[in-house]
Each structure stands twice: as C-alpha cells, then as structure tokens.
Design a binder for these strands. Structure first.
Lengths: 147, 147
DNA sequence: GGCGATTACATAGCACACTATGGATTTAAA
DNA sequence: TTTAAATCCATAGTGTGCTATGTAATCGCC
C-alpha cells in the first residue's frame, strides 16, 4: 500500500521539486532579483494598471501574499500605487520605469529557463506537457473548491 | 518576442502553480500538519535513521532548510536526534512513535492527492508525465551544476 | 438617511525555501 | 605532531506562501 508512495512516481513530489529548481534557476539569472514579482511583471507588462485583488487572482495567490509582494516591490521602486478616486479602499498598481526594465530582464530569464526545461522534451511532447499541467491544476482547484 | 511568455505555456509558471496547489491540498487534509516534513517521513518511514546531511540530499533541499525542518519536527515530537559516538559533529535522526504515526497519515493524504491529480490524466499518460518531469528536473539540475 | 453586510486592503504570526556565515570537530598534509 | 583544510551542523536574515484577523470604505436594504 505505502509502496505506491515512491518519490519518482509521486506527481506532487516531482512537481514541488521541479518548481523549486525553476525558481532557483531564474533567481540565479536575476542577480539580486527574486521570482516573486514575476506574476506582477507579467500582469502589468505594457503599462497596464490593476488593483491588488486582480493581481492576486491572476497570480493565483492569496490576498495577503500579494499585499506583501507589492510592499516589497514598492519599497524597491518597482511599482507605484495610485489611489482610486472612486473607491478610497482601493488603488491601481502599475510598474515604474525601473519596474518595466526589470520586467523585461525577468522575461528574458524566464524564457531562457523555460527553454532549458522544454529542451528536455521532444517538440511534439511540449504541448502535451502544458495540457497535462493545466488538467492537473484544474483538478486540484476543483478539489480545493469542494470544501 | 515577449509574446512567447504566456502563462498557459510557461513550464515554470505552470509547475509553480501546480506545486502550490499540491501543497495546499495535502495541508488541508492534514489538519494542523504541514507538508514540509513529508520528505523526512518518506526517508525515515520504517524506522530508518540517517544524518541531517543525508536527509537534505534526499529531499533536495539545502542544509539549513533541513536543519530548520528537523528543529520544528523535534519541537513537535516527531523526530529524535541520537548523537553519533564516532563523530561528535553528527547525529542520527529517526522518527519517534508519534512521527511514525504522522508519517502514515501523511502518506494516505499524499496518495489521495496524487490520485486526484493523476485522475486528470489518462492511464497511459501517467508514466509519460512522470518521465517528462524527471527529464525536466534533470535538465534544471544540470543547469544548476554548470556555474 | 441610517445601519448591517460586503469589499479592499493591512497586519500578525507561522512554515519553508534560500544565501551567507560561524563554531566545533574531524581529516589530511607538512 | 601540529596546523590547515574539510566536514557537519547551527544561526541570522530575507523572500514567498499560507491562515486568521482587523480596519476602513462602500453598498444595499429598510
């Protein structure tokens, strides 16, 4: 029974392991930069602005996680928060000029690392991999929703 | 160029996302338990004992990460450290009775969550998925080694 | 218009991952 | 044998994720 829990055939174990290697590979290339802002860079790439809540949803993290990430990014001069005149609870978040620069560098690193990973797959396997991941994500989100 | 960085076709983004969902799914089932001790449970399942260094290597985490995990587990009564008489720098780590119990429960949860994930794949796809993950992990580890 | 419910965000506290660094012990080389 | 290098572990500091909770503003219903 517990025999079935072998590292090499545990989807969760392999996924967690790979995720840490992805993060390390990107951070090695970012020289002082971190991988946490990546989803924010992605969401706000070409000058877009959105609320913290929308960013959290896009990044699929909880609201306090995004709040902390944005605080660090603001501290580091990567984003600015513009108060929403229509709703004083809310603010529009956007990248600063420095943030836009860092976003470009982050994309270059991310594309490079993704390339290293997908080079381990045959070309015809790549779409299959993305599709499997999307199905696993959907299954785990359904599980999370049924509480 | 940056067009190629789309969330749905970024191996790193998808992997990170899935890894967080795996961890959340397991922790929801553990009722107060966390997913950090999982690799330790796995390595020490049937009463085995090994050094912190060996555990860190098996779990593929850095030494301070494992040191902290073991400290929390010791605090919670899950592991014990037996000083090595031959080498006073080192200690053999093993699970306590409580640790062995928790390990069993953790395996049940992990197997259930892995099942939810792999149910999203057709039976003949599952080995393909494991194989792809192992190849991606190997590629990223080669990248990390070439510094 | 006023009041309860909802919404947006912040804060506190913890787990788990990393790098950088230090202390104690053991090993190896001069 | 003495000393330098290597090894094992601990600690400090930070980032990223979570849950639980609080505060302020807005919305909606009477």
């Amino acid at each position: 029974m517990y025999m079935s829990y072998v590292r090499e055939t545990s989807a969760g174990y392999l996924t967690n392991w790979a995720a840490r290697l992805f993060a390390r590979a990107i951070e090695r290339r970012l020289a002082g930069g971190n991988s946490g802002p990546m989803p924010v860079f992605f969401a706000l790439q070409d000058g877009r602005a959105m609320t913290q809540k929308a960013l959290a949803q896009l990044a699929a993290v909880e609201q306090p996680t995004m709040a902390n990430t944005l605080s660090r990014m603001e501290r580091d001069g990567l984003v600015q928060r513009t108060p929403d005149p229509n709703d004083r609870r809310s603010a529009q978040v956007s990248l600063t000029l420095l943030g836009l620069e860092r976003a470009k560098a982050a994309f270059v690193s991310a594309i490079e690392v993704n390339g290293i990973a997908t080079d381990a797959l045959r070309p015809e396997e790549r779409e299959v991999f993305y599709d499997m991941m999307r199905r696993i994500i959907a299954a785990l989100e359904r599980d999370a929703a049924t509480d």
